[in-house]
Design a binder for these strands. Structure first.
Length: 934
RNA sequence: AGACUCGUAGCUCAGCUGGUUAGAGCGCUGUCUUGACAUGGCAGAGGUCGGUGGUUCAAGUCCACUCGGGUCUACCA
């Protein structure tokens, strides 16, 4: 027999995808029953990571499954312009040539970004194709497309006109490295060991000194008050008096505010409203301001005017001693401390854990800084969003994320939407000479709309990237135009995303969509877990534990992997460690597993609400699963050749019990898998698929058919082969949403083997349908056969029986003979343990000089010859009897308990009773056997 | 400080509203090269379900407390 081609995913995957894409298999057909899904747009700067792999595998499974259920599906694809990330990438590129963005100016810089985007921006979309995603490439979108820009402007102007967007001068999180403001969400608070200092402030016109505690002595130049708790008796005398700031030598008021915790530090806090968010609030309450004479004063909240002593580089500036001007904040800290010591004002220095606010992109220590920024009134938008989730219009899966969502939404702060960057959506606001702001989509538009004369100047800032992505579900479909796509596919069905962007993106999409569309963006939100490494560690560059999905698909050598993991490290000293760990974990690099195996691994691990520790050990097993399918195909090919099989429309595979049985199993599995997918239980769905294909189709059905084929008539042979093919085709359809490549390829090959032309792509076919009604008892008979065979095998192994036994099988009187024929062949050829099979419908035989052991109830008995050595058989039987006995005692006790029999449901009780009877019978048979040979 | 989440076989994980003798894959042990597949077949050994207490006829599952890991939000200078 000719050797058949091995399973090589590389050979099939890429070419199949190109074909799907060329033939527009994934473009939605327009009809009323729709199912739509929006891809969370990956950053255009990005490369595929395991999280993408995971989420896109899930989305693709959903989309393909729905398509095969008859929906017109749309999976919208696109990328995000990723303001800061992209700007950083291009700045870095320019930096290599020693050019800064300021050198070339705004327009040229943006040109360079577009150049870069056109050259490298499709890396991630190419990688998405490798995952087999059924994305609608015809309508790919980018959040800086012309149409998208129009949508963003439209949204901004609308919100501006409604008074929901406003400009404010207040504290923001300032990134001194990137020179831009950030929203609260972009701040990462990192706990670190730092210091806290106690400093004496002297009282004005008095010798007394008042000690304060601070972690930021350098900001004392910005102090505008001291504060104590109103109930703190230690300091009640000082309230209303004034203190002198050391070093700065300025006088400030002492105020009472409940914000101060008397039990912490000294119970006195310096209030620096220009450099601390809490102090800002305190300052506002007390109306802190600088009087015309230059003195810090209290007043009413409307008078509040904080002072700032730092510039945008976080260097000291403003009303400070000359020697501090222009000094970096941390150098200034040292200098302030030195002066405090020399003026004898520093009381003590202690170790103290502090939380450092870091920028999520730059990793730089952020500075609260007073600036003018644009804000979106999130509070007004949040209410309908909260309501939509509260009343179940939008559902989180798993549900517990709703709590997280509510917690944040109910305490939502206004969203700082302006960024001091060049790349992005420029804020569509023009200012006249007096500083009045007008929103419009162009200068002309503004002039016309508001009838303004004189010079106008556009705002320099751009919008936070998340502002544009918050419009994603409808802006991609053509909004604000009333397009067909918008009508057909909005609201979308499901959003699949990670919990890390619930606030950044999910919450904001809900708010914006409800505001603009007056409908929800999606009905369900499936929150996936995070993909971690095998030890549960987050995958990160600095840990050197990143796995690239593409490397799992294609494989990678150890050297290349090490190079990849150590290239461009922020901390080069980690290189050796990463190298060693990588060498240890992947001494031979990583094998090529193919997309289907990778995807299947994701499904099998996708238990909801749980992070995934990605264990490389599991993916190999699923490649073997693909191989198993591949070889099932070869098996059929061999049968076709061997039996000279020709496709014949008149052969009905469901004339044969074995085929019907398998068909029925597949139909049952289809129902289960459908249910699992509805519940987002991809783990259970993939288990079921593995089970039906490997255990049921390959291990039982093929083996039974194989044996039947050898003894069947020609027509039965053809029927069986037709069934093999039909059932495998059904399984391929069922598996297609999970493993699109191998299923499509095998499906085609099956057609080629039968000299049939292949008309359909699998995704355009329907899921397995019930085509034959199962006869009543077939399942039972097959289960009996399976039980018998299993028991025989177990006994053979346990009792070390070899080939010395015969078998008696009690065939039910009306059972289809063909089933039991295959059993006969099965037993003889596969297990080779029974010398001669004795099929019988008689009462249990009494064979002279032999031992009959009843197995599988009374369905079958083993006949052991008398020359057999029984010692170990008997001891094994005794062990078995002991176990049964214990179980019997337990059940009897349980059933004797009146509370149990009265209170437990009837079927539980009868179930236990039936079990007990069965065990008693089994025990009796065992005792007989043992007695006979002892 | 508040919230969430996890702890089940050597490893990675299932176990839905409490109800048979707690399951899977990998790994391990034994056995088998027989015309789909050794990337395989068959069989087997591994768990008192983190701990304590409670509710119940019945607890891996519910409750309380507790130990240990992870995450998020807010933050005391």
């Amino acid at each position: 027999m000719a050797k058949k081609s091995p399973y090589l995913p590389k050979d099939i995957e890429e070419s199949l995808y190109s074909e799907w894409e060329e033939k527009l298999v994934f473009s939605p057909k327009q009809h009323s029953k729709t199912f739509s899904l929006m891809i969370p747009p990956p950053n255009v700067t990005g490369t595929l990571h395991m999280g993408h792999g995971f989420q896109n595998a899930i989305m693709d499974c959903l989309v393909r499954f729905k398509k095969m259920q008859g929906y017109s599906t749309l999976w919208q694809v696109g990328t995000d312009h990723a303001g800061i990330a992209t700007e950083m990438v291009v700045e870095r590129l320019l930096g290599r040539d020693g050019i800064s963005k300021e050198d070339i100016g705004r327009d040229k810089f943006i040109e360079r970004v577009w150049d870069w985007k056109n050259q490298s921006g499709d890396t991630i979309t190419q990688q998405l194709r490798r995952l087999g995603g059924s994305l609608d490439w015809e309508n790919e979108r980018f959040t800086c497309d012309e149409d998208y820009i129009a949508a963003v402007q439209h949204a901004f102007i609308d919100l501006f006109d409604a008074g929901l967007i406003y400009q404010g001068y207040r504290l923001v999180n300032w990134d001194p490295k990137l020179q831009t403001s950030l929203s609260d969400l972009e701040v990462i608070n990192e706990e670190k060991e730092g210091k806290i200092w106690t400093i004496n402030y002297s009282l004005e016109n008095c010798d007394a000194r008042i000690p304060i505690a601070t972690t930021r002595p350098e900001t004392l130049f910005g102090d505008m008050a001291l504060a104590v708790n109103p109930n703190d008796e230690r300091y009640s005398n000082f309230i209303g008096k004034r203190a002198i700031i050391p070093v700065a030598k300025r006088s400030i008021p002492i105020v009472a505010d409940t914000y101060v915790d008397s039990s912490f530090g000294t119970g006195v806090v310096k209030i620096t409203p220009g450099h601390d968010f809490n102090d800002y609030e305190v300052g506002k309450r007390h109306g802190l301001h600088i009087s015309l004479s230059g003195e810090a004063m209290t007043g009413d909240p409307s008078q509040f005017l904080p002072i700032s002593i730092m510039d945008k580089n976080a260097c000291i500036q403003g009303e400070v001693p000359n020697e501090f001007k222009g000094m970096d904040r941390f150098i200034a800290r040292e200098k302030v401390l030195k002066e405090l010591i020399s003026s004898n004002s520093l009381v003590r220095e202690e170790i103290h854990t502090i939380k450092l606010p870091l920028g999520d992109r730059s990793n730089e220590i952020l500075e609260p800084l007073l600036t003018k920024q644009w804000y979106l009134d999130a509070k007004s938008l949040s209410e309908p969003a909260i309501k939509a989730v509260r009343n179940g219009e939008i559902k989180f899966v798993p549900k517990n994320w709703e709590k997280t969502f509510f917690q944040w939404m109910e305490n939502i702060q206004d969203w700082c939407i302006s960024r001091q960057l060049w790349w992005g959506h420029r804020i569509p606001v023009w200012f006249d000479k007096q500083g009045n702001a007008f929103a419009g989509n162009s200068e002309e538009n503004v002039r016309e709309k508001y009838n303004v004369q004189g010079p106008l100047k556009q705002d320099e800032d751009v919008l936070d990237t998340w502002f544009s992505s918050s419009l994603w579900t409808f802006a991609t479909l053509g909004w604000p135009k009333k397009t067909d796509r918008l009508k057909l596919f909005h609201p979308t069905a499901t959003l699949v995303t990670g919990f890390d962007i619930i606030f950044f993106w999910v919450a904001r999409m809900i708010m914006m969509t409800l505001y603009f569309m007056k409908e929800i963006p999606f009905k369900e939100i499936f929150i996936t877990g995070l993909i971690r490494d095998e030890n549960g560690q987050k995958m990160s560059k600095s840990k050197g534990n990143i796995l690239d999905p593409i490397d799992l698909i294609d494989g990678i050598s150890l050297d290349a992997l090490i190079k990849k993991r150590t290239h461009g490290l922020m901390q080069p000293q980690l290189e050796d460690k990463i190298k060693a760990a990588t060498q240890k974990q992947f001494p031979n690099g990583i094998d090529s597993f193919g997309t289907d195996a990778l995807r299947f691994t994701f499904y099998s691990l996708a238990a909801p609400g749980r992070d995934i520790n990605f264990d490389i050990g599991r993916i190999g097993g699923f490649k073997n699963f693909c191989n198993k399918i591949w070889n099932a195909m070869h098996f059929i090919e061999f049968q076709i050749e061997k039996y000279d099989f020709k496709k014949n429309e008149h052969i009905n595979p469901f004339d044969h019990s074995l085929n019907i049985w398998m068909h029925h199993q597949i139909f049952e599995s289809t129902k289960k898998i459908t249910q699992h997918i509805e519940n987002y239980r991809f783990d259970l769905a993939s288990n079921e698929l593995y089970e039906i294909i490997w255990s049921k189709y390959c291990d039982w059905y093929i083996e039974l058919v194989k044996n039947q084929l050898t003894q069947a008539e020609k027509s039965e042979q053809l029927t069986l082969i037709t069934g093999l093919i039909a059932n495998l085709e059904d399984l391929l359809k069922l598996a297609h949403p999970f493993m699109p490549f191998i299923t499509e390829k095998v499906f085609r090959n099956l057609n080629i083997m039968q000299s049939k032309s292949c008309k359909n792509f699998l995704v355009d076919t329907a899921l397995p349908q019930q085509r034959a009604v199962i006869k009543k008892n077939i399942n039972r008979y097959l289960n009996d056969i399976i039980e018998c065979i299993t028991t025989i095998r177990t006994n053979r192994n346990e009792l070390n029986l070899d080939n010395k036994v015969s078998l008696i099988l009690n065939i039910p009187p009306h059972a289809p003979k063909e089933l039991f024929n295959s059993f006969n062949g099965f037993k003889a050829s596969l297990d080779r343990m029974c010398g001669v099979a004795e099929l019988s419908s008689l009462e249990p035989h009494k064979v002279p000089n032999s031992l009959n052991i009843l197995i599988a109830g009374d369905k079958c008995q083993l006949v052991l010859p008398s020359e057999f050595k029984f010692d170990n058989v008997i001891s094994s039987l005794k062990d078995k009897q002991e176990k049964i006995q214990q179980r019997i005692i337990m059940l009897e006790k349980k059933l004797a308990n009146k509370d149990f029999t009265n209170k437990a449901p009837r079927e539980v009780v009868s179930n236990q009773n039936a079990q007990l009877q069965e065990l008693i019978q089994e025990k009796r048979a065992l005792v007989d056997s043992i007695k006979k040979y002892s």
